[in-house]
C-alpha cells in the first residue's frame, strides 16, 4: 500500500509524519468555533440547510433493545422521512449493529430505498476492546450481510499509550477487508482522546491509513461532536486535500439533536473545509432525534406554524 506516499507503514515513518503536524491551540479553536456559531442562517439559506442536513443524516439505532421491527420502522422512515411530503429527501444511510445489517438492507430494498446505504458499526463497537481476529470477523460479517459502510472504532488504549502504529495497522487491515465493497468510517471517540492535538493527530493517522471518513464519536460517550472538535477535523481534511488531492469525509455523531445544531455544523463545513464538502458523500451527521426536528422546522418554514409533534412519525 502506498498510504498516499506519506508513510511507508513503519513505526518510524508514522512517528515522523505525525510529529510534523502543527499543534492546535485550544483557546483559539474554541474561539473560532464560537464565532462561527453566531452565523445567522435564515429564510432560503435555512431551507437549503435543512434539506441538505436531512440528506446527510445517518439515521441511527444502536441499542441493546433493537429488534427487527424497530430496524424495519427506521428504514421506512429513512427512505421517506415525511410520508406526507415526498419532496423531503431520503437520509444518507441507516446505521445499525452488524446483526441488523441484513434486516436493514432487505427492508430498505423492499420500501424503495435502494439508494440509502446501510452502515454497520464494527470492530467491537463501542469500546474497541477485542482481539484483532474478532474485529476482522465482526467486519466481515457486516460486509457479507450487505453493509455498504463500515463505522469502525479505533483502539483508544493503543492511541493514548502512544502505540500509533497499532492503531494504524488496524485501520489498514479493516480497510483492506472493505476493499471496494464498503466505505470506511473511522471513529475516534474524541471524548476519550480529549485534546485537540490528539484529534488532529488521529485525523491524519486515519486518513493516511485509508479512511474514507473520519468520525467523532460512538454516541456512547460525552462530550461527542462538539463544534471545536468538528472544526479541527474539518481543518484536517482540508489540509489533507491540499497534500494529496483526496477529499476525505467527516461525520460528527452524538449530541446533534436539533436543527440549530445541524445548521451550525453546516456553517463549520462551509467556512472551514469549504462548500465542496457540503454533500452527503463527504459529510454525514450521525443522529436519531435530529431528523424529526429537521422535519418540524421544514414544516414550519412551509406553513408558517410549528406543527404538533403528532405530525411527525416517531420512528
Amino acid at each position: 500500500m502506498s498510504f498516499y506516499g506519506l508513510v511507508d507503514g513503519t513505526d518510524t515513518s508514522l512517528k515522523n509524519y505525525l510529529g510534523s503536524l502543527s499543534g492546535v491551540d485550544q483557546v483559539g479553536a474554541d474561539a473560532r468555533a464560537a464565532m462561527l456559531a453566531t452565523r445567522s442562517i435564515k429564510t432560503t439559506s435555512k431551507r437549503w440547510a435543512i434539506d441538505m442536513a436531512i440528506s446527510m443524516v445517518d439515521l441511527t439505532t444502536l441499542e441493546g433493545a433493537d429488534t427487527v421491527g424497530k430496524v424495519q420502522a427506521l428504514c421506512t422512515k429513512a427512505v421517506r422521512p415525511d410520508p406526507t411530503d415526498l419532496t423531503v429527501p431520503s437520509v444518507g444511510a441507516v446505521c445499525v449493529y452488524n446483526d441488523m445489517v441484513a434486516t436493514a438492507r432487505k427492508h430498505l430494498d423492499l420500501v424503495g430505498g435502494q439508494h440509502v446505504g446501510v452502515a454497520a458499526v464494527s470492530t467491537a463497537f463501542p469500546s474497541g476492546r477485542a482481539s484483532m481476529p474478532v474485529k476482522l470477523r465482526d467486519t466481515r460479517d457486516a460486509l457479507d450481510a450487505g453493509a455498504s459502510e463500515i463505522d469502525m472504532v479505533i483502539d483508544r488504549g493503543a492511541f493514548l499509550s502512544g502505540h500509533y502504529i497499532d492503531v494504524f495497522n488496524e485501520i489498514v487491515a479493516i480497510k483492506e477487508l472493505c476493499g471496494t465493497r464498503a466505505h470506511l468510517k473511522v471513529i475516534f471517540e474524541t471524548g476519550e482522546l480529549v485534546t485537540y492535538d490528539n484529534v488532529r493527530k488521529a485525523s491524519f493517522l486515519a486518513m493516511a491509513a485509508g479512511a474514507d471518513f473520519i468520525k467523532t464519536s460512538t454516541g456512547k460517550i460525552a462530550p461527542a461532536a462538539t463544534a471545536p472538535v468538528v472544526l479541527v477535523m474539518l481543518e484536517a481534511v482540508r489540509d489533507f486535500y491540499s497534500m494529496t488531492q483526496q477529499r476525505i469525509g467527516v461525520k460528527p455523531a452524538g449530541g446533534i439533536r436539533n436543527t440549530k445544531d445541524a445548521i451550525k455544523q453546516l456553517v463549520l463545513v462551509n467556512e472551514t473545509a469549504g462548500p465542496e464538502w457540503l454533500t452527503p458523500s463527504l459529510f454525514r451527521i450521525g443522529a436519531s432525534a435530529l431528523l424529526n426536528d429537521l422535519l418540524m422546522q421544514r414544516m414550519k418554514m412551509d406553513t408558517g406554524y410549528y406543527a404538533s409533534p403528532a405530525y411527525v412519525t416517531i420512528d
Binding site: 445567522s40 442562517i41 435564515k42 429564510t43 432560503t44 439559506s45 435555512k46 437549503w48 440547510a49 441538505m52
Partner: peptide
C-alpha cells in the same frame, strides 16, 4: 418555499 442550489447565506439584517 423554493430550495436554493447552494449555501449562500441569505441576508440577515
Amino acid at each position: 418555499m423554493e430550495t436554493p442550489v447552494s449555501f449562500d447565506y441569505a441576508s440577515a439584517p
